[in-house]
Deep mutational scan, measured.
Amino acid sequence: MLDDRARMEAAKKEKVEQILAEFQLQEEDLKKVMRRMQKEMDRGLRLETHEEASVKMLPTYVRSTPEGSEVGDFLSLDLGGTNFRVMLVKVGEGEEGQWSVKTKHQMYSIPEDAMTGTAEMLFDYISECISDFLDKHQMKHKKLPLGFTFSFPVRHEDIDKGILLNWTKGFKASGAEGNNVVGLLRDAIKRRGDFEMDVVAMVNDTVATMISCYYEDHQCEVGMIVGTGCNACYMEEMQNVELVEGDEGRMCVNTEWGAFGDSGELDEFLLEYDRLVDESSANPGQQLYEKLIGGKYMGELVRLVLLRLVDENLLFHGEASEQLRTRGAFETRFVSQVESDTGDRKQIYNILSTLGLRPSTTDCDIVRRACESVSTRAAHMCSAGLAGVINRMRESRSEDVMRITVGVDGSVYKLHPSFKERFHASVRRLTPSCEITFIESEEGSGRGAALVSAVACKKACMLGQ
Rank of each mutant, 00 (worst) to 15 (best):
N166S: 11
E319W: 13
P153W: 13
L184H: 14
I348E: 06
A460V: 09
H416W: 15
C213I: 13
V71R: 03
M87V: 03
S212C: 06
G170H: 15
F84I: 10
E372G: 02
L386A: 03
V253N: 00
R368F: 08
V302F: 08
F123E: 04
D42P: 10
N180K: 03
R394L: 08
T168S: 12
I348G: 03
D400M: 02
V408A: 11
D344F: 06
T405C: 03
E196Q: 12
L315I: 13
E322D: 10
A21W: 11
V244D: 00
C371V: 05
V199S: 08
M202W: 06
L463M: 14
E67V: 06
R36K: 05
L352M: 02
S64R: 15
E112T: 07
D311Y: 08
Q106N: 12
Q18L: 13
A378V: 07
H380V: 14
G318N: 09
Y413M: 07
G68T: 02
F152A: 13
L165I: 09
Q38P: 10
E221T: 11
H218M: 11
V86C: 08
D341W: 02
G261L: 09
D113W: 15
I19G: 05
A188S: 07
L270T: 06
L463E: 11
N180Y: 03
E93W: 10
P66V: 06
I19V: 08
H137Y: 04
L315E: 00
S453E: 14
F260P: 00
C457Y: 11
E395R: 10
E70S: 06
V305D: 00
S64G: 09
I436A: 09
V408W: 10
K104E: 08
M41W: 01
S445D: 12
C371W: 03
R155A: 14
L79A: 06
F123T: 09
D160E: 08
G117V: 09
K12E: 04
F419E: 01
S375M: 07
E443A: 11
L184I: 12
G229E: 09
K142L: 11
L25C: 07
V244F: 00
I366C: 04
K140S: 06
S127C: 05
L292N: 12
E67N: 14
C213Y: 07
L122S: 10
I126W: 05
I436M: 11
T437R: 11
M202N: 02
